[in-house]
Simulated scan of single mutants.
Amino acid sequence: MIKVMSISGAILLLLGAAGIGWLLLTPSGSEFRYLMADTLITTQHRHWAKYIIGQRQLDARVEAYQQRFNAMGEERDTHEIHPEPQPVMAPVSSSAEEQEQPVVKPLVEIEEISGSGYSGYVMTVNDPTKIRIGVPEKKGRGERVRSMVERTGAIAGVNGGGFADPNWQGNGFQPIGIVMSGGKLFYNDLGKSRSTQVVGIDGNGKMVAGRYTVEELQQMGVQEAVTFQPRIIVNGKGLIRNAADGWGIAPRTAMGQREDGAILFVVIDGRQPGHSIGANLYDVQQIMLDRGAVIAANLDGGSSTVLVKDDQVLNKPSTKSSEGRYLPTAFLVFEHPEQAQIANVWEGLKASDIDPGKW
């Protein structure tokens, strides 16, 4: 018995040594280590990545990604949208009852998707002018997307931009960068001359993504916008070169637009073995390209990722609550967006007035 245990122990030691050697000394092992590190970097346990690649490599990798993300936002987008006219349903005479009737697309369409290690949804909004940025109702605390949808009478909603999150326990109230809703600047911590990477929509329903100043956005007639990055498709071409550049495996939310104007929201669950591990940005880019996106950008993902339709959370957020986190912004879809009551909850507040960690 002792001999068998000794042999088993020796085998385990050899396998462990071989595994460590593979991780440290082979190209495929190094690739796997950096994938693990990138995945941790997108979570509340970023500091753990240093035990996989070292603190120096961790800092260098985060800086390299930031520089690349910045560069991905510089090319000016020139895409144009050509919305398809919706057929008008006229009264049908008895003599024409059997004729084929024109098809009216629903405002919102939901498609389930799956791939290697992930599952999620694509929500298509066929009229991009029906989208507004929603914000919390009460000062000092973010709001869950389902609550925003229910309170405002929206049809659907998806999480939006980034926010200050000290110790990954923030209250979801302080956005990062800017927030625009209904053509008004709700929040700005940039200053007049600084630019930021935005994801938004102008007054004609054209999606805007890339690096802009507030003045540029206002001149362009942008109505709805939040700050987040990176842009992953511009002028019809993907910017993420391969899976290794995909910033690890995580829950994802992204927004794109087809040439016909339809807005695509990709929502992918993650961090849930047996259901969905997550996707990298290359996966998300390819999902968008396969569906005809000519522009697309990443939105806040991770435990913020949530999709709501008809007051129900469709996906499975990677949070203790099945309804996701408290957030500062969401993309909301309305039948009549001009009637939506969305007030500026940050009016009169400066960034220095907000404690993002206090509930």
Results as ranks from 00 to 15, higher is better:
residue 229 Q to V: 07
residue 256 G to M: 13
residue 200 G to Q: 02
residue 276 S to Q: 14
residue 253 T to Y: 06
residue 259 E to N: 12
residue 217 L to T: 03
residue 169 Q to I: 12
residue 269 D to Q: 13
residue 236 G to W: 06
residue 191 G to P: 04
residue 256 G to I: 14
residue 175 P to I: 07
residue 263 I to M: 14
residue 270 G to A: 14
residue 175 P to N: 06
residue 235 N to S: 04
residue 275 H to Y: 15
residue 269 D to K: 11
residue 178 I to Y: 01
residue 270 G to Y: 13
residue 256 G to A: 13
residue 260 D to T: 13
residue 274 G to E: 13
residue 186 F to A: 04
residue 173 F to E: 03
residue 226 V to N: 00
residue 245 D to E: 15
residue 210 G to R: 03
residue 249 I to N: 12
residue 254 A to F: 11
residue 199 V to H: 00
residue 217 L to D: 01
residue 246 G to Q: 12
residue 204 N to F: 05
residue 256 G to C: 13
residue 278 G to M: 15
residue 204 N to I: 05
residue 199 V to K: 02
residue 209 A to K: 00
residue 233 I to K: 01
residue 198 V to P: 00
residue 277 I to M: 15
residue 186 F to D: 03
residue 164 A to G: 05
residue 200 G to S: 03
residue 260 D to A: 09
residue 202 D to F: 02
residue 189 D to K: 09
residue 186 F to Q: 05
residue 207 M to R: 00
residue 173 F to Y: 10
residue 161 G to A: 04
residue 268 I to T: 13
residue 281 L to E: 09
residue 218 Q to A: 06
residue 231 R to Q: 04
residue 173 F to M: 07
residue 186 F to N: 04
residue 179 V to L: 06
residue 260 D to C: 11
residue 218 Q to L: 09
residue 244 A to V: 14
residue 215 E to T: 13
residue 241 R to K: 15
residue 196 T to R: 01
residue 168 W to Q: 10
residue 208 V to A: 02
residue 215 E to N: 12
residue 215 E to L: 13
residue 259 E to F: 06
residue 280 N to C: 14
residue 259 E to W: 08
residue 255 M to D: 08
residue 253 T to V: 14
residue 262 A to C: 10
residue 208 V to K: 01
residue 266 V to G: 11
residue 217 L to S: 02
residue 228 F to D: 01
residue 255 M to Q: 12
